Measured scan of single mutants.
Amino acid sequence: VKVFRALYTFEPRTPDELYFEEGDIIYITDMSDTNWWKGTSKGRTGLIPSNYVAEQ
């Protein structure tokens, strides 16, 4: 598990995607895809765009 911080707010387009706000901490559990990672924030899990976060 790696810890990342959201650089921007992300509004999901599908139920599989995770909503998060700029500054949120996201725990990444799967980075197997280059563009979409699986992450958890505020008790919810979903896909996030990798270019919206920076490693802490």
Rank of each mutant, 00 (worst) to 15 (best):
V1D: 08
V1F: 14
V1E: 11
V1S: 11
V1R: 10
V1Q: 11
K2W: 14
K2P: 06
K2H: 11
V3W: 11
V3G: 05
F4R: 02
F4V: 12
F4C: 08
F4S: 01
F4M: 10
R5I: 15
R5S: 07
R5D: 03
R5H: 09
A6V: 03
A6Y: 04
A6P: 02
L7M: 10
L7A: 03
L7P: 02
Y8E: 07
Y8T: 07
Y8A: 12
Y8F: 12
T9Q: 06
T9P: 06
F10I: 04
F10W: 15
F10R: 12
E11H: 15
P12S: 07
P12F: 06
R13Q: 12
R13V: 09
T14N: 14
T14P: 02
P15T: 10
P15K: 11
D16Q: 12
D16H: 11
D16L: 13
D16R: 08
E17I: 03
E17L: 08
Y19E: 10
Y19M: 09
F20S: 01
F20Y: 01
E21W: 04
E21Q: 12
E21D: 07
E21H: 09
E21L: 09
E22D: 05
E22A: 15
G23M: 02
G23L: 03
G23Y: 04
G23T: 02
G23D: 05
D24R: 01
D24N: 03
I25T: 10
I25M: 09
I25D: 06
I26E: 00
I26H: 00
Y27A: 06
Y27Q: 07
Y27W: 11
I28Y: 01
T29F: 15
T29Y: 15
T29R: 05
T29I: 14
D30L: 04
D30I: 04
M31W: 11
S32E: 09
S32W: 06
S32P: 08
D33S: 09
D33F: 03
D33Y: 04
D33P: 04
T34D: 14
T34C: 13
T34R: 14
T34S: 14
N35G: 12
N35A: 13
N35L: 15
W36H: 03
W36Q: 03
W37P: 01
W37S: 00
K38D: 02
K38A: 08
K38E: 09
K38G: 05
G39K: 00
T40I: 13
T40N: 11
T40C: 15
S41L: 15
S41N: 12
S41A: 12
S41D: 02
S41T: 14
K42W: 06
K42H: 12
K42C: 11
G43L: 03
R44F: 08
T45Y: 14
T45I: 10
T45S: 13
T45R: 07
G46K: 02
G46I: 02
G46L: 02
G46R: 01
L47S: 04
L47V: 07
L47C: 08
I48E: 01
P49I: 03
P49N: 08
S50K: 10
S50R: 11
N51I: 10
N51P: 06
N51C: 15
Y52M: 12
V53M: 11
V53F: 07
V53Q: 01
A54D: 08
A54T: 14
A54S: 13
E55Y: 12
E55M: 12
E55A: 13
Q56E: 14
Q56A: 15
Q56P: 09
